[in-house]
Amino acid sequence: MSKIGSPLFLTAVLLTALVLAAGCSGNGAAPDTGKSAETRTITITDGLGRTVTIPSPPESVVCSGSGCLRYLVYLQGQDLVVGVDDIEKEDQSVEGRPYALVYGSQFKDLPLIGEFRGKDDPEKILAIGPQVIFKTGSSGSAYSISASEADKLQEKTGIPVVAFSYGSLRNDAEKAEMYTGLSVMGMVLGKEDRAREVVSYIEETIADLENRTADIPPSGQKTVYIGGVSYAGSHGIISTEPAYPPFTWVNARNVAAGLGTVHADVAKEALVDWDPGYLFIDLGTLQMDGGGAIGELKTDRALGGLTAVREGRVYGLLPYNFYSTNYETVLANGYFIGKTLYPDRFEDIDPVEKADEIYTFFVGEPVFEEHNAEYQNMGFAEIPL
């Protein structure tokens, strides 16, 4: 088992999150007894180290920034939302967010708080009057969130702002950010148990994936590449994730590893030279003209010579990124990848059934079929070329 999937890592992350969320009243959840039951408050430390006093528990919230509303759905707090950013109100030709498949109609009818990616309109938020504003961003990107930005929004609205980094599953530091964000949000909402349940589910799922393939020697590891990865929009075959977590979890050898930890555009010539045994395509690429990466594999002579193309080992994965990371889809993709590469290690797994189990846990409904239909039913299947 890798360090990030170990019990020690999970314990350390949870302890860190609890310390960050602890308030000034001794245990972080103690109410201000000078307040009435209707207006009691707690003081917490958010994911950016800011001290914030909030109603406990709040009866109305808004979520600002990529993925923030997704976390609220994970914690089963969607009925508290009283306003949304503009991406939740748009009619998407393809809906790449499982949480929006379930709750999109509910969110679409809510008042507007500003533009997507955290471009808030303080006057609109004031007019709605939520008791708490949650605000998130992605570390190391153009859409990160700083303490000063959170302070400024709080000053303009007079409403408590609880901020945290969205995190990721790519490395220990970003995983700790993710777990801290979930724990802080859970503390604010009075849903600490659900936050711990979500963190434990993620850890147990990753551990299961890792344990199934842990003893595969380097010589037996399949070579893989994922192309067409969505990143602030749809992209073609050269768009990849050098640290794509599911490859790591199932001990597959990512031929693009070493090109960073977030996103990379590789030279087509490099892909041809690497010649991975298996190609996986993020189906967000289908939103490009000509079918994106799939169209390229069909029409580009050099790409057509890849072993995976010639031998029919090109497979579709449901989109990894759509308004930040769909973690439930990342985990589900891991089981399909594992089953495809090492079927004997996953003989008890039906990837579609497993995906629906995961979707139900995170967003409340088994949405694989509906989600996959948006991508021409190419998910978890060989792509005919």
Rank of each mutant, 00 (worst) to 15 (best):
F9W: 11
L15E: 15
A21L: 09
N27R: 09
G34D: 06
L48A: 05
L48S: 11
V52G: 05
V61I: 15
S66C: 05
G67Q: 10
Y74P: 09
V81Q: 07
D85S: 07
L110P: 08
L112W: 07
I113K: 09
E115S: 09
R117L: 09
R117G: 00
D120A: 15
D121S: 10
I125Y: 05
A127D: 15
P130Q: 04
V132S: 06
V132M: 06
S141I: 08
A142Y: 12
A147M: 12
A147L: 11
S148H: 13
E155K: 14
R170C: 06
Y179V: 06
G190I: 03
V199N: 02
Y201N: 03
E203M: 14
E203A: 14
D208C: 01
N211H: 11
R212A: 05
K222G: 05
V229A: 08
P245C: 04
A257F: 11
V262R: 14
D265I: 08
D275A: 05
K298C: 10
R301I: 15
R310H: 02
R313V: 04
R313P: 01
L317T: 03
L318G: 03
Y323D: 02
S324A: 12
G334C: 04
G334E: 05
I337E: 06
I337Q: 06
I337K: 02
E347Q: 14
F361L: 06
F362E: 12
E365G: 00
P366G: 09
F368E: 04
E369W: 00
E369V: 06
Y375H: 10
N377S: 13
F380Y: 15
